[in-house]
Structure formats: C-alpha cells, structure tokens
C-alpha cells in the first residue's frame, strides 16, 4: 500500500515533467524537469521525505540494474564504433583525466582563496 502510494507520487511527478517538456520548445528531458519538480516540492515541504523514502531508496540503491538494457543496446550500434574503438576509448580516458585535474585544482584554489565562504 505504502510502496504503491510512493511509486504513484514519483510517477505523477515524472509525468508532469514529461508534460512540461512537451510544451517547451527546447528539448529539455522530461525526467530531469521531474527531478527539479521533486526538489522544489521537497524544499517547500509539499512533499516530505517519508512520502517517497522507501521507494526512492530502493531505486537509488539499485540504479545500475535499470541501465543494463541501455548498455546492451550498444550491440545494435556497434557499427558506429567500427575502426574508432581505440580513439573513442582514448577520448574518454583523456577527457576524464582532464576533468579531474581541472575540477580538483579549481576547487582546491577556490576553497583556499575564500576560507569563509
């Protein structure tokens, strides 16, 4: 009963996000608008943590399971990687390194330069 109620709240918010996404001219994904709606509802207290807690925790703790079908879908788009596999992996590795170096150094610098923020 409780799980159904929580799932209903989450799905209604998701649906509202999709609805807003449809009416916008820019392709902002509906699920992300849904996330922002839930954040606003939590901040304003219209939705309390306990209204979604168990279902949300289950979904968050088991997130990777829901990505498996998307991962498997690479088998039907493998032709795009054909001959570009090494370059693609190099791009991912180098970009990740660059992101970590920039984020780490900038954040460390900002914290040290503004001790009281």
């Amino acid at each position: 009963m409780k799980i159904f109620k929580q799932l209903l709240i989450i799905l209604v918010i998701n649906f509202a996000g999709e609805l807003i996404s449809e009416t916008l001219s820019e392709p902002l994904p509906g699920s992300i608008i849904g996330m922002l709606i839930l954040l606003i509802l939590l901040l304003t207290g219209l939705v309390k943590e306990k209204h979604i807690a168990e279902t949300a925790t289950f979904l968050l703790d088991n997130m990777p399971f829901f990505f498996i079908p998307a991962g498997v879908s690479v088998m039907v788009s493998y032709q795009f990687l054909d001959g570009h596999l090494a370059a693609t992996i190099s791009t991912i590795v180098l970009s990740t390194l660059f992101v970590m170096i920039v984020t780490g150094l900038v954040t460390q610098f900002l914290i040290k330069s503004k001790k009281d923020d």
């Binding site: 799932l7 918010i13 998701n14 699920s31 996330m35 949300a56 925790t57 968050l60 079908p69």
Partner: peptide, 25 residues
Amino acid sequence: HYTKGANFIHAFLGPVTVVLALPLY
C-alpha cells in the same frame, strides 16, 4: 526478443532520474 521484456526495465529510467532529487535535497 530481448527488448520485449527489457523495455519494462528501461522504462524505470524516468523514475530513477526523478528520485535523484532526494540526495540533492
């Protein structure tokens, strides 16, 4: 054949994204 069932799992990506608001909150 695989996606016939897998699409049910894939459909949960929406709700999974929505509840990411919780750790943020």
